[in-house]
Deep mutational scan, measured.
Amino acid sequence: PTIVLKVSPEELKALEKAGVEIEKIEKNEDGELYITLTPEALKKAGFE
């Protein structure tokens, strides 16, 4: 199962800087950012 999270541009930068593997980055028509994370990326980021 993949996880989709709504993030701010600042959060996205912080995640990328931390080396979190982001599978997909999407922006909706309201300009909101959503990222898709794999279970492996979540484990690496410390989420179980």
Rank of each mutant, 00 (worst) to 15 (best):
V4N: 05
K43T: 05
I25H: 03
G31F: 03
L5H: 04
I22D: 00
V20Y: 02
D30N: 14
K17H: 12
V20F: 02
V7Y: 01
I22G: 01
A45H: 04
I3F: 07
L37T: 15
D30S: 15
P39F: 12
D30L: 13
A18N: 09
I22L: 07
E11A: 12
A18D: 05
E21A: 07
L37F: 02
K27Q: 14
E40C: 04
P9Q: 13
E32A: 09
E11G: 09
A14V: 14
E23H: 06
G19I: 02
E40M: 03
K6T: 05
A41R: 01
I25G: 01
D30K: 09
K6H: 08
A18V: 08
A14P: 01
T36S: 09
P9H: 12
K27Y: 15
E40W: 01
K43M: 09
A41N: 10
K13W: 12
G19Y: 04
A45F: 10
L33F: 11
L15Y: 10
S8V: 04
K43E: 15
V4H: 08
A18E: 07
L12S: 01
G19P: 01
L37G: 01
E23T: 09
K17C: 06
K27V: 12
P1N: 11
T2K: 10
L12G: 01
F47L: 14
E48R: 01
K13Q: 14
E11I: 15
E32Y: 13
K44I: 15
S8A: 07
S8W: 04
L5R: 07
Y34V: 08
A14Y: 12
K24R: 11
K6G: 04
Y34L: 12
A41M: 07
P9F: 11
G19K: 06
E11S: 08
L5K: 06
E32L: 10
L42S: 04
K17D: 12
L33C: 06
G31P: 01
I25C: 04
L37N: 00
A41G: 04
E29H: 12
E11M: 15
A41T: 04
K13C: 09
E40S: 03
K24Q: 08
N28Q: 10
E26W: 14
K44M: 15
A18I: 11
F47I: 11
L15G: 00
V20N: 01
P9G: 08
T36L: 05
E26C: 15
A18K: 13
E23M: 12
F47R: 02
E10P: 05
V4C: 05
A14G: 06
I35V: 11
P39Y: 15
T38M: 06
T38P: 02
V20E: 00
L15I: 11
L15F: 11
G31C: 05
N28K: 12
S8T: 12
L15D: 00
T38Y: 05
E32S: 13
V4Y: 06
G31I: 01
K17L: 13
L42V: 08
P39C: 15
L12E: 00
I3K: 06
E32M: 12
L5N: 01
E11D: 09
E21Y: 05
P39E: 15
A14K: 15
G19M: 08
L12W: 06
L15K: 00
K17R: 13
T2G: 08
P39H: 14
G19Q: 05
P39D: 15
E23G: 06
E16W: 11
L37D: 00
K43I: 13
K27C: 13
E11Q: 15
E10L: 14
K44Y: 11
E26H: 08
D30F: 13
V20M: 03
T36A: 03
F47N: 03
P9T: 12
E23P: 03
T2R: 08
T2C: 10
I35S: 00
E23L: 14
G46I: 04
E10N: 10
L33Y: 12
V4A: 05
E40R: 01
V20I: 14
E48Y: 02
E16C: 13
K17I: 13
E48K: 02
E48G: 10
K44H: 15
F47A: 05
A14H: 12
V4W: 05
E10R: 08
P9A: 12
V20T: 05
P1Y: 13
V4E: 11
I3N: 03
P9R: 12
E10H: 10
E21H: 07
G19R: 06
T38E: 06
T2I: 14
K43Y: 07
E40D: 09
L33T: 09
I25R: 03
K17F: 10
E29L: 12
I25L: 08
V4D: 03
N28P: 03
K43P: 02
E26N: 08
I22E: 00
V4R: 14
K24H: 09
V7H: 00
I35A: 04
E21V: 06
E32Q: 13
V7F: 02
K44F: 14
F47M: 10
E16F: 13
E29P: 09
K13F: 13
L15R: 00
F47T: 04
T2D: 09
L42W: 14
V4M: 09
K44C: 03
N28F: 07
D30Y: 14
G19W: 03
N28Y: 09
L37S: 05
